[in-house]
Simulated scan of single mutants.
Amino acid sequence: MTAVAASGDDAALIERFLEMMAAEAGAARNTLVAYRRDLAGASCSLSGKLGCAQGPALAQLGEQWLPLARSSVARKASALRRFFAFLAEEGLRADDPSDALPRPGADRTLPRILDHADVDRLFAEIERRLGIQRSPANLRLSALVELLYGSGLRATELVSLPRNLVRQDHPYLILRGKGGRERLVPVSDRARAAVGEYAATLPKDGPWLFPSGKAHLSRVRLFQLLRTLAADAGINPERVSPHVLRHAFATHLLEGGADLRALQTMLGHADIATTQIYTHVDSRRLVDLVNQRHPLADVKTSTRVDAGRDGS
């Protein structure tokens, strides 16, 4: 029987794990919430015996997850693997039974994408509204969309921007994103102009760039604003979200010839593999890019063939 610390029931073990993830791994709040939910659910399914669970119990748990989407199963299994690795490293149990957890193939479908015409329609609708009235609400929407599409911010990063972070004399932001990692985010002249005009409507002493009541604008409200904008622009609202605009930012930059490593930095991805999945470009365009930009592109095929014959 695997030994588990006598004083550590599931609840206490989960708390210790989450404290480690916050302090040592720098996990973001949303990540910690997801870990807590998945671990508490697994503990409930195992009658409070997750900490001392053996392979057969975990295999049975995996069977309970079969009706779920592969992405959900992968997330739950990943949370449990990190949890059991923590218990083993801390000496709270003598083994790591996580090999019994399912390993579903990653569901790596590409995010929905807006083409250039769709984006043009969104901005045309914003201009139409501003032409009618340059109200604080319309100016706020303009600033939100400019930053989403022009800088590729995550929804949480956007709505929680400090009041004075976007400055007219600084064409970039330094943001702390997932895992506490800092990154440099470029801000276009258009975006800075839109933010400047909107910010002039705000109280001077507020802490948030996008205030709402006593806090900042919520992600849910941002989502609703974009859906309404899409509908008014003649675009199916189901196709538009903050994440879709972030993906459009990445894809359109890559289509324009942006370097993948630079894009990784701007998006705040720890692993470039994430950027490669997140940004997709027509394969024919990539072939053309190699043919046009590679150092050997100017070397005549006939010259190489003749050289080969001479050496035969």
Rank of each mutant, 00 (worst) to 15 (best):
residue 20 M to G: 00
residue 31 T to G: 12
residue 203 P to W: 12
residue 66 L to R: 15
residue 288 D to M: 12
residue 245 L to I: 09
residue 305 V to D: 08
residue 14 I to R: 07
residue 290 V to S: 02
residue 92 L to H: 13
residue 205 D to W: 02
residue 257 G to W: 14
residue 11 A to D: 12
residue 162 P to W: 09
residue 301 T to W: 04
residue 13 L to V: 04
residue 3 A to N: 11
residue 216 H to R: 12
residue 51 G to I: 04
residue 269 H to F: 08
residue 119 V to F: 03
residue 174 I to S: 08
residue 195 V to R: 07
residue 64 Q to K: 15
residue 261 R to P: 01
residue 59 A to L: 13
residue 149 Y to S: 00
residue 186 P to F: 06
residue 213 G to W: 09
residue 211 P to N: 03
residue 141 L to P: 02
residue 20 M to A: 14
residue 290 V to H: 15
residue 147 L to G: 03
residue 118 D to V: 03
residue 132 I to D: 14
residue 228 T to L: 14
residue 106 A to M: 11
residue 3 A to Q: 15
residue 167 R to H: 07
residue 75 R to I: 01
residue 60 Q to E: 15
residue 167 R to G: 05
residue 15 E to V: 06
residue 157 E to H: 02
residue 229 L to F: 09
residue 198 Y to D: 06
residue 178 K to H: 11
residue 48 G to P: 11
residue 207 P to R: 03
residue 78 S to L: 06
residue 75 R to D: 01
residue 113 I to T: 14
residue 276 Q to P: 00
residue 38 D to S: 03
residue 270 A to C: 10
residue 100 A to M: 12
residue 100 A to C: 08
residue 295 P to C: 11
residue 41 G to T: 06
residue 64 Q to I: 03
residue 220 V to H: 00
residue 84 F to P: 07
residue 99 D to I: 10
residue 143 A to V: 02
residue 92 L to A: 13
residue 190 R to M: 09
residue 114 L to C: 07
residue 93 R to L: 01
residue 110 L to A: 10
residue 89 E to F: 07
residue 104 P to Q: 08
residue 280 H to Y: 02
residue 9 D to Y: 09
residue 149 Y to N: 03
residue 203 P to I: 04
residue 281 V to L: 12
residue 222 L to E: 01
residue 90 E to Y: 04
residue 144 L to R: 10
residue 146 E to W: 10
residue 280 H to N: 08
residue 53 A to R: 04
residue 77 A to K: 04
residue 76 K to G: 04
residue 286 L to V: 11
residue 89 E to H: 11
residue 210 F to K: 02
residue 192 R to Q: 01
residue 28 A to H: 00
residue 294 H to P: 04
residue 282 D to E: 14
residue 115 D to G: 15
residue 265 T to E: 09
residue 12 A to V: 12
residue 221 R to P: 00
residue 225 L to G: 00
residue 108 R to C: 03
